[in-house]
Each structure stands twice: as structure tokens, then as C-alpha cells.
Design a binder for these strands. Structure first.
Lengths: 210, 210
DNA sequence: ATTTACTTACTGACTGGTCAGTAAGTAAAT
DNA sequence: ATTTACTTACTGACCAGTCAGTAAGTAAAT
């Protein structure tokens, strides 16, 4: 393998290792993944891995921290951008399928779920810095809508969870079932259907419902 | 360990082994679980395991097949029992938290998700015999309601997925986050909120919505 | 320009330990 | 005495992490 000389090349290699490790952990789980195979898929030897990361565990932690945070910041930015809650919900309908398809977040989630009990402190970190942040962003948006009578009053925390539930389900579905059964879940139709349901359920339109 | 003499005692022991294996696979994943620890938790030695199951893999398959099927049959029975779709939805609101709390289905799901790629044929079996059956049961129920104008017309397959999404989310949440963060998700409030949303979104009441 | 001395990214064989599965042995019941 | 449920000591394969060595690059001296 070509030697990484400059700092830029080195951080490129580090990113390459993290990618390879994510793919291996995702496919085989933490325990069944060998350091040798992470190295091979990154195009380097096992020994070189240890020049970049202390241990298998520190590699796991690096994956969670480097991949998930930028995505959640993107989502937060998205949610405060629109003034109206209804516009925000409409935005989610198109953004969520995109997030599921192009980001690495579903893979990270699968890895985290699978090996949660080996690394409880990583789970706690992920929960407070990724999951709770995402949920709060949506819950706050909904609460604003409920407060200024744009939306029906409901528990905003629970409603936020219900908004995210199909995202988790789709992530698992596409990664686990679609991969092993060679099928393809229609994400656009799923989120379009969810959007219709949410709009009908949450809006106080036409002065009909009590 | 007391010797299992009769056929009844033997199948009790088999069930005990399956329980122990589920707990271990759930906590540590397939690869990191040792046969010795499965035996220890079932109160027998490692060698005895091999009198009941050929291999670690056959133990994994036995878990999926013996635990999930009875639960899904229970759900199917529940869904055809009530004549009205609305009554069925109301029933789900109380049944789903119960299923999440008392059945082993969430643990089985977590194990299956974690080790999906090691056993693709098990995933396919689980999908056709458990997941697709459950989804179809709900989708058929919804389709009936849409056909006889009890419900708003929407894609019944997708709506069924949206009904189940919070179940999967709650399963993961309670098993992964609540366990490691010492919190407790309010399942009753969650499903009550979902029920309110579904009722408002799906019913064609008061002749208001188009 | 070439040699020489030095630095550093990288390699892969090795070690200590683990574990699935096996087979020889024990003991309870008939 | 024989069968049957179970135990335990063992084996061979596998792997995380280490470390002695290699080779690629750099720079000073000739």
C-alpha cells in the first residue's frame, strides 16, 4: 500500500478505515469481525490499523461519533428553517427517504442496536447526543404548532416518537429484509402515506373536529 | 442436574435451553455467546446441550421458529375477532403494549436483526412466516374498512407498516435504551397517542373531510 | 549526482487465550 | 448388566494485539 505521508493523506486513510470497519461491523457484528478483515477491506495490513486506532473498541467508538453527529445537525437545521409547522412536516416527507438512502445513519443504528450491551457508555452517548436531540427538535416544532393552535393538542414527545418510528422501521427493513430477500420497500409511498395521516390527524382545519 | 427421564421432562429441558439461549444471544449476540454459558444458565453442562441440539446454529433456528409463530397466530386471531375495524384498532391500542411487555417477541426481533446476515435463510423464513403474516392481517383489516367506507382510502399495505412501526420502535427502545440508560418509555401513552392520530386520520366521520 | 545516515509507514509471523464441538468416562435408573 | 442422561477433559481452529523487521522516503555530506 502507498504510504500516507501528509496529514491530509493520513486523515483520508483514517476515514477509509472507519468506513471499512462500519461495513464489517454492520455485516458481521462486533465480535465476529476480525481486525485482519477490516484492514484488508481498507487496503492495509492489520498492523497498520494499530497505528491509527488503539483497539477494536476505539474503532467502534470512532464510527458512532464521526458519522452520526453531522447527520443530526443537518436535521436540526432543517427543522428550524421553516416558519410553519405544516411546511416542516411536508419537508420531512421528502427529506426522510433521502436520509435513509444516502446517509450511513441506518448502518450506524443497526451496529449500535446489535452491540449495545457490549458498549453501554456508547449507547448512552448516542442517545443523548443523537436520538434525544433529534426527538427534541421534532417535539419542539410540534409543541410550537400546538401552542399557536396550528395543530391538535397531543403529547408532543410521543408524537415526535411516532413521527420517527417509520424511519427506524424503514432503516431496519431496507437493511435487513430487503437485503436478504431481494425486495425493495417503496420509501416515497410510505412517507407520503404517513404525511397524509399526520396532516389529517394533526391539523385543526375546517372547524369540524372538537 | 436432575436427569430428565420422561418425554415431558425432556421437552421442558429443551424449552429451558431455548430460553437460556435467547437470553444469551439477546445480550451478547450470536458470535460472542458461548455454548458453555448457555448451558450454565440452563443449569446443565455444555456437553448436554449437544444431546438436545446439533450445533449453535440449530439452537438459533429453534429460537426463531418456536417463539415467534405462536405470537403471530395470537395476533391474527385477535384481528379477525371483531366485526368493526374501529373496534379492532381500539383493541390494538391495549394489546400492543401487552405484547411488547409480556412476549419474547422483542428479544427475538433484536436477535434476528443483529445476526441477520449470518443466517439469511432464517431471516427469509421469519419474514414470510411472521412479519408478512402480521402485516397482511392488519392490511386486510384496513382494506375491509376502506372498501365499506368506514375508513379513508389509503394504501393499506403502507398504512399497516405505519401501524407496526411504533411497535418495532418501542421494542428497540425498551430493550436498548431503557435498559442501558435506566429510563422507562410510557408505552400506554405512546399507543394512546397513536390511536388518537389513527382515529382522526382514518375515519370518515362528521362528513367534513373530502 | 551519489552515497550514507536517519526517520517512519507499514507488514506479517507469533503469542496467549478463547471456544465449538467431541469423546471418554460417570452414575442413575431399569 | 445394560441403557441412558449427563459431565468433563480434550482438541484443533481462530483471533486480538504485539513486535521485530522491511522498505519507502528524506536530507545531509561528499
Amino acid at each position: 500500500m502507498k504510504r500516507a505521508q501528509t496529514e491530509t493523506q493520513k486523515s483520508e486513510r483514517e476515514a477509509q478505515i472507519i468506513q471499512s470497519a462500519l461495513e464489517q461491523f454492520f455485516q458481521n457484528g462486533f465480535s465476529a469481525t476480525t481486525m485482519e478483515s477490516i484492514g484488508r477491506h481498507a487496503g492495509i495490513s492489520k498492523g497498520t490499523l494499530y497505528l491509527y486506532f488503539d483497539s477494536k473498541e476505539s474503532l467502534f467508538i470512532a464510527i458512532i461519533k464521526t458519522i452520526a453527529i453531522p447527520q443530526i445537525e443537518h436535521l436540526e437545521a432543517l427543522l428550524i428553517q421553516k416558519p410553519s409547522v405544516l411546511e416542516t412536516l411536508a419537508l420531512l416527507q421528502t427529506e426522510l427517504p433521502r436520509l435513509l438512502r444516502v446517509s450511513q445513519l441506518p448502518k450506524v443504528a443497526k451496529v449500535l442496536i446489535s452491540d449495545a450491551f457490549i458498549f453501554p457508555e456508547v449507547v448512552r452517548h448516542y442517545r443523548t447526543h443523537v436520538v434525544d436531540r433529534g426527538l427534541s427538535a421534532v417535539a419542539n416544532c410540534l409543541r410550537r404548532g400546538m401552542d399557536n393552535r396550528e395543530l391538535v393538542p397531543l403529547d408532543p414527545e410521543m408524537t415526535a416518537r411516532l413521527v420517527f418510528a417509520p424511519v427506524l422501521m424503514s432503516a431496519i427493513w431496507t437493511l435487513v429484509f430487503d437485503r436478504t430477500c431481494n425486495t425493495q420497500l417503496n420509501l416515497e409511498l410510505l412517507f407520503e402515506t404517513q404525511h397524509k395521516i399526520l396532516i389529517r390527524a394533526l391539523t385543526l382545519d375546517e372547524a369540524s373536529h372538537v
